[in-house]
Amino acid sequence: MKIIGLRGYHLGFSPSPALGNASTFIRRRDFLLVQAIGEDGTVGWGEAFSSPFAAAAFIRARLAPLVLGQPVQDLGRLYHAMAGTLNYDRRGAGMMAISSIDMALHDLAARSLGVSVARMLGGALRDRMLAYASGPFIAEGPDPYREYPGQVDDLLRRNFRAIKPRVGVAPHRDGEVMRAMRRQVGPDAALMVDINQGYAVGAALQSARHMEDADLLWIEEPLQPEDIGGYQAVAQATRCAIAGGEALGSLAAFRDFLQARTFSVLQPDMGVCGGFNGFRRIAALADAFDVPAMPHVFGTLVNAHAALQMGSLLVPRRGGGPMPYPFIEIDVTPNPLLTLLGPMDPAADGTIAVPDAPGLGFELDPARLAPWLGEQWQIDAA
């Protein structure tokens, strides 16, 4: 089946209250969803993360001419053709654009076969994944962690057995809130933290020391994303695993961090690193270093479902916590573009099912995107 069209949907909303992390307060969330259209009318969905407007421009100018009119089954050939357009920019909006197209083509190809993406790529190793809550987030005002106890109680009631709050207000405050959270959740729940690139090396080391008694599975992105030397220093000095990789796009970038022995948990984002093709290459590299990889997810239902399909294919590794890795990250903030088809809360055992329906495993009428739609475009094959 040939690809006869691409559609783009620019979506967004303003979270209320704003979502705080160690680097910023998120007051606007913008997304790009892409549909790849087959000649029989079947469609596949993809998503770009972080730079939706620049990614859309790249798709329209460079990628659309490469994929339109081509067989959707040529997933590897089309990926390498798209990657050949990057030139100097191998870690930015161009790769995010490729990510969305690759994701959409995998969805379309699997739907055309009547199977899930995981089945098309060789078969899932699991049908459920442990879900971890991505939140709570820092609040504005003099007591940034004030809402955490109530929010954590709510997450426990929603069956989450793993929770990743944002920290980074100050090292000693990080320790106080995480020690209190460990007492609150008990010894069996998994706790991780995300510092969102908010500290320099010294503060990151202090924060890690203050949080040691909280028994964390990992500390995520304590430094700027390409500070290899800084990550080496933190990884060597702390007893806790260091996680990261969501802001890295190229295979070479992951190679450099793995060779430097910085990350104990690798977190590529499928909307950044090249979709399914990109993630699979990174996962193979991680396997060579015996480092667990799992998708970073903080977008719409499209990336979340792609991450479930990809996560189901990954080799299990024990990293601590209630189950072996990989886990699936669930945005627990009010995000209507994630919960458009219903909540993504875990079952009583803390896990979420990997859909076995065709493609990414969901059906979405684009008309349902209307409340959040800012712009829409379509490019057809000549």
Rank of each mutant, 00 (worst) to 15 (best):
I3S: 08
I4R: 15
I4K: 14
R7Q: 14
G8E: 09
G8K: 05
Y9G: 03
L11D: 11
G12T: 06
F13T: 07
F13Q: 03
P15C: 01
A18H: 11
S23L: 12
I26G: 01
R28H: 15
L32N: 05
G41C: 06
T42F: 03
V43W: 03
V43M: 09
A48D: 00
A48N: 02
A48V: 00
P52H: 06
A57V: 01
R60H: 04
R60A: 04
A61S: 13
P65N: 06
P65W: 06
V67M: 04
L68A: 04
L68Q: 08
G69L: 06
Q73L: 06
Q73E: 13
D74P: 01
L75H: 12
Y79K: 02
Y79V: 03
M82S: 03
M82P: 04
R91L: 06
A93I: 10
M95R: 15
S99R: 10
S100L: 02
M103L: 14
A104N: 13
L108F: 08
A110H: 03
A110S: 05
R111E: 10
G114E: 12
V115A: 10
S116C: 02
V117L: 12
A118T: 13
L121V: 07
D127E: 15
D127L: 08
S134R: 03
D143T: 11
P149E: 06
G150T: 07
V152F: 02
D153W: 03
L155R: 13
N159I: 02
F160C: 06
V169A: 12
P171D: 05
H172V: 14
Q184G: 08
G186M: 01
G186E: 02
D188W: 07
A190P: 01
V193C: 05
D194E: 14
Q197C: 11
L205P: 00
R209I: 03
R209H: 10
H210Q: 15
M211A: 12
L216V: 11
L216G: 09
L216D: 12
W218I: 12
P222R: 06
E226M: 10
I228S: 08
A235K: 14
R239C: 06
G245F: 09
L251P: 00
F257T: 04
A260T: 05
T262I: 01
F263M: 13
F263A: 01
V265Q: 04
D269W: 08
M270P: 00
G271C: 10
G271Y: 01
G274A: 09
G274H: 09
N277I: 04
R280W: 02
A286K: 06
D287W: 07
V291N: 07
F298M: 11
F298S: 13
V302G: 01
H305K: 11
A306M: 09
M310Y: 03
L313C: 07
P316M: 05
P322C: 00
Y325V: 03
F327I: 00
T339C: 07
L340M: 12
P343W: 01
M344I: 14
P346M: 06
I352D: 00
A353H: 13
P358A: 11
G361R: 08
L364T: 09
L364R: 02
L369Q: 02
P371F: 07
W372N: 03
Q376E: 15
Q376D: 07
W377H: 09
I379A: 13
